[in-house]
Design a binder for these strands. Structure first.
Length: 629
DNA sequence: CGGGGGTCGT
DNA sequence: ACGACCC
């Protein structure tokens, strides 16, 4: 009985999860906005890896075969996306942009298109500045030391969508702090989404919650260009399931982050009392059996210890049962990790239809080596006095031998990888009956990374040649001792085991404080509030629908987003969702202004002498009062 | 043959 | 070195 109790929640942090909408397609669209209104898809090998929402409206979807896509939508415009350097660059740029708003540098990337940001400190600061008697006329400070930077918002309401959909916000008077902190989280999320779209041209879908787990899943409720906040109660009370429990309950077990294919199959098998049907990998939305979180969470035999027995085996982590039990309840204590200055690993790979001779292999190893060495110079080289990695262009077309130069002057290595790894995926030999067993197993061999790769005076071409001949060929022979008979479907080259350069900490945190401030100032100076008009409270759109109450930030003109926002979802099963973001006020007033005008500093603080607009002074005075001791 | 990446744990 | 997980 004890073991069946829901694990305790902490809920003391506020986390925003960003997911850029159809990211690869958006990277092309950012460069060429005309694509936005056309059906557009990105191709890798024989499949569409992602497509924009116009293409989806016409029946296309991710991971679709090119020939199917062309049959369904002959008009579709397709670009090749096998060279992922542009996506990597865009991902880093957006990550850096979001990071420039963070106070604590707790900001973590997952893949290229997802980012978690822990905004606990910004939210706490602004909580202390609220006037509880007039929550509607609130001001959110986005900079600790500049009280004028920020935006006005209505702290009696949520920005975007709440979960549950029918959530009704509490009366102004006795709202609890957790609810208030989540509201503030929703408003800073909306603001950051707006900045991303205005300044970088990317729309995003966002979830706001107290854990990485729930914030990530919450975003899925309002896609694309939407945001969802999971509202209290977050903890179960007696037998009354919390909103988090209800939210998690609806998920298919394999959709829970942390429960992958293997664990999901084991859990399904237990719930169904028979082996779970095998998923025919390529079929989209296949007939996979639906076992939900609720099925397991409410199952009388399921508890932490039982899950440990069910799921543990050779190679499984300790405490897997407890961890899964927590996930079923939406409990996840993992922190948003601090920004790292350098990655833990850099790898480059390509796949092949056929690669079975030494000359061909050497040619491919040369191409991969040049790519890898170029990536090392891009990602691991920093200016002597600079905070960020150099990050200059330096492209290696995977299929060509062209290598543009990475500027190397005045740069030094931020980290020295110590290990070189060569991975291959052997293709299974033909069976007697002429068929082939598909295998995705990889084998790898590691060795010390020769020091000459750090020599900046040598060309990439020459270093790659030395790397292939002095290290990789002998490593390959250890992987494949046979003279012939091998055939590779994939080759991957990696450097790992980064050891920090002297005097550098591994995280960006605190590496160069003065530089950090400079960076934040650079970003903020573009966004200062310059609204000269006396503050007037924003008006929520009038409607019987509770969701409409959520649009409570006053936004500037935003014609592009507006056009798209006005599109009401088609009845078909397209994933377009209603979007409540960025409704312009009917009177056209702007809540913030990204313009270049001088700030209108019409008041001066008696305490500290800072000048700022009158509306910001209200919160600022309260700040001094709070910190009076 | 479903791309080209990443992280962590044993 | 490899397998699990994530996109």
């Amino acid at each position: 009985m004890e073991a069946r109790k829901a694990p305790a929640r902490k809920d003391n942090v506020i986390i925003i999860h960003f997911d850029y909408d159809c990211f690869y397609a958006s990277v092309f669209e950012a460069k060429n906005p005309a694509l936005r209104s056309l059906p557009f898809a990105v191709q890798q090998k024989q499949i569409i890896v992602t497509c924009n929402y116009e293409a989806r409206r016409r029946g296309l979807h991710k991971l679709q075969l090119i020939k199917d896509a062309r049959r369904i939508c002959p008009d579709v415009i397709i670009e090749l996306g096998e060279d992922i350097s542009r996506f990597r660059d865009a991902s880093k740029e957006l990550y850096g942009f979001i990071k420039s708003f963070s106070w604590n540098d707790k900001i973590e990337r997952l893949g290229f298109d997802e980012v978690w940001m822990d905004v606990t400190d910004m939210v706490e600061w602004n909580m202390s500045c609220l006037n509880r008697n007039n929550l509607q006329d609130s001001f959110f400070q986005i900079s600790k030391d500049n009280p004028t930077a920020g935006f006005q918002f209505d702290a009696t309401a949520i920005a975007g969508h709440p979960y549950p959909k029918n959530y009704v916000h509490e009366s102004t008077a006795q709202v609890d702090d957790l609810t208030l902190r989540l509201r503030l989280g929703s408003h800073i999320a909306l603001y950051l989404r707006h900045q991303l779209e205005q300044h970088k041209g990317y729309t995003s879908t966002v979830g706001i919650s107290t854990t990485k787990l729930v914030s990530k899943l919450a975003g899925n409720l309002n896609k694309p260009k939407g945001q969802t906040t999971v509202m209290p109660p977050l903890s179960d009370v007696d037998d009354e399931p919390s909103n988090v429990t209800k939210f998690m309950d609806d998920h298919e077990i394999g959709k829970v982050p942390g429960i992958g294919f293997k664990l999901a199959q084991k859990l399904r098998e237990f719930a169904l009392q028979r082996p779970a049907e095998i998923d025919p990998g390529l079929v989209y939305g296949g007939t996979k059996e639906r076992v939900t979180v609720a099925d397991l969470r409410t199952h009388p035999d399921v508890n932490s210890e039982m899950l440990e027995k069910l799921l543990s085996g050779p190679g499984s982590p300790h405490g897997i049962g407890y961890k899964i039990w927590c996930l079923l309840h939406g409990v996840d204590d993992t922190e948003v990790s601090s920004a790292r200055a350098v990655p833990r690993q850099i790898s480059i790979e390509d796949s092949y239809i056929r690669l079975d001779t030494m000359p061909e292999l050497i040619k491919e190893l040369m191409i991969l080596s040049k790519s890898l060495l170029t990536r090392m110079r891009i990602d691991l080289l920093g200016s002597d006095d600079d905070f960020e990695p150099a990050n200059e262009e330096g492209e290696v077309g995977n299929g060509t031998d062209l290598v543009k130069a990475v500027s190397v002057v005045g740069k030094k290595w931020l980290a020295h990888p110590k290990t070189l790894r060569l991975t291959t995926r052997p293709r299974q030999p033909l069976q007697p009956d002429g068929t082939r067993v598909r295998s995705f197993k990889r084998i790898s061999h590691s060795g010390p990374l020769p020091n000459f790769v750090f020599n900046l005076n040598d060309t990439i071409e020459r270093l790659a040649d030395k790397l292939v001949n002095e290290a990789l060929i002998s490593m390959f022979r250890k992987l494949h001792p046979e003279k012939a008979g091998w055939n590779l479907s994939l080759v991957n080259l990696a450097v790992t085991n980064m050891s920090e350069a002297a005097g550098q900490s591994k995280t960006a945190n605190g590496r160069d404080i003065s530089n950090m401030f400079r960076k934040q100032e650079d970003v903020l100076k573009d966004f200062r509030v310059t609204d000269k008009s006396p503050f007037s409270p924003p008006k929520a759109k009038i409607s019987g629908d509770a969701q409409d109450l959520s649009t409570t930030q006053r936004n500037g003109n935003h014609s592009e987003a507006r056009e798209e926002d006005d599109v009401v979802p088609a009845k078909k099963g397209i994933e377009e969702a209603e979007n409540v973001m960025f409704d312009a006020d009917e009177d056209g007033e702007t809540g913030w202004d990204d313009g270049d005008g001088e700030d209108d500093m019409d008041e001066c603080c008696d305490e500290c002498g800072l000048r700022m607009p009158a509306f910001a002074m209200v919160a600022h005075r309260r700040f001094h009062l709070q910190n009076a001791d």
